[in-house]
């Protein structure tokens, strides 16, 4: 089983978000970067599948040198080798094309990634990579098992889930509860230092969207506290101010 896991390098979920230069640049000051939480699920499942079936795991990131600590963490968790495509991830179209260029000659059976990145939340790259390769893509995937050359999956749908079977190779956008996140142990951290991390130049490609500027949400005007013995006041507010009934 040859598995590629695409990982994003994103601000920790507890990060405070702010922008610089007239709201055109994300302010990285004091921000802790992590493997995208959904990508972390994909990586964890890849490690489990490798334990069951043998094979290899390649981690891939599209990013500048600053993402290497995040890539090393993926190696510590269980990837055998890593590829970094040395480019700022401009948009989903750009990133999908970079991944496609690496994957197309690679004979991967499984291409896993998170259902979406937690910075831009697009949820687009897995579908785009699948379409570029001409192979099926499934997302958001909650369970993934392999039987021979068939993937047995469940996908979350509104109000429940859907069970599918898809012939390999496939691209899957993953989410919980596909696997438990894995915390790297000391042996993993030590071995990650010597595992290969290959840096590739980006492949020329256009982008199809451009962020003009960022906007912060309007602040809440302040909370109205209501006495627990006076729920009637809340009902009045819901009726007359929020107008929900």
């Amino acid at each position: 089983m040859k598995i590629l896991v695409c990982i994003t390098h994103v601000p920790d979920t507890t990060s405070k978000i702010s922008f610089l230069d007239q709201d055109t640049v994300f302010d990285k000051t004091g921000v802790q970067f992590i493997i995208g939480p959904y990508d972390d699920y994909a990586l964890a499942r890849a490690v489990e599948l490798k334990e069951q079936l043998g094979g290899s795991i390649t981690a891939l990131n599209v990013g500048l040198a600053e993402t290497e600590p995040t890539i090393r963490k993926a190696l510590a968790i269980g990837a055998d080798e890593a590829i970094r495509i040395n480019a700022e991830p401009k948009d989903a179209f750009f990133v999908a094309h970079q991944i496609f260029q690496v994957v197309k000659g690679g004979d991967y059976d499984l291409i896993l990634m998170g259902r979406e990145s937690i910075d831009f939340n697009g949820g687009q790259v897995h579908g785009m990579v699948g379409e570029l390769l001409g192979i099926p893509s499934v997302s958001p995937v909650m369970h993934l098992d392999i039987a021979g050359n068939v993937a047995k999956l469940s996908r979350e749908i509104e109000g429940g889930k859907e069970l599918l079977e898809v012939a390999l190779p496939i691209v899957a956008g993953c989410q919980e509860p596909i696997a438990e996140w894995k915390i790297p142990n000391m042996r993993g951290i030590m071995s990650a230092r010597s595992k290969p991390l290959n840096v590739l130049d980006p492949f020329e490609d256009e982008q199809k969207t451009v962020v003009e500027n960022f906007v912060m949400p309007a602040a809440k005007s302040g909370i109205k506290m209501i006495d627990a013995d006076n729920v009637g006041e809340l009902v009045d507010l819901l009726k007359n101010e929020a107008k929900v009934f």
């Binding site: 989903a92 179209f93 999908a96 259902r115 979406e116 939340n121 697009g122 949820g123 687009q124 790259v125 897995h126 579908g127 785009m128 699948g130 379409e131 570029l132 893509s137 499934v138 997302s139 958001p140 996908r155 979350e156 749908i157 509104e158 956008g173 199809k208 969207t209």
Partner: peptide, 20 residues
């Protein structure tokens, strides 16, 4: 959950810009 993966595939088929 259907629109996300479908929109991505169609964007490549049609060479379209996609925003979610």
């Amino acid at each position: 959950s259907l629109a996300d993966p479908v929109s991505a595939r169609v964007s490549i088929k049609m060479d379209a810009s996609l925003v979610s």
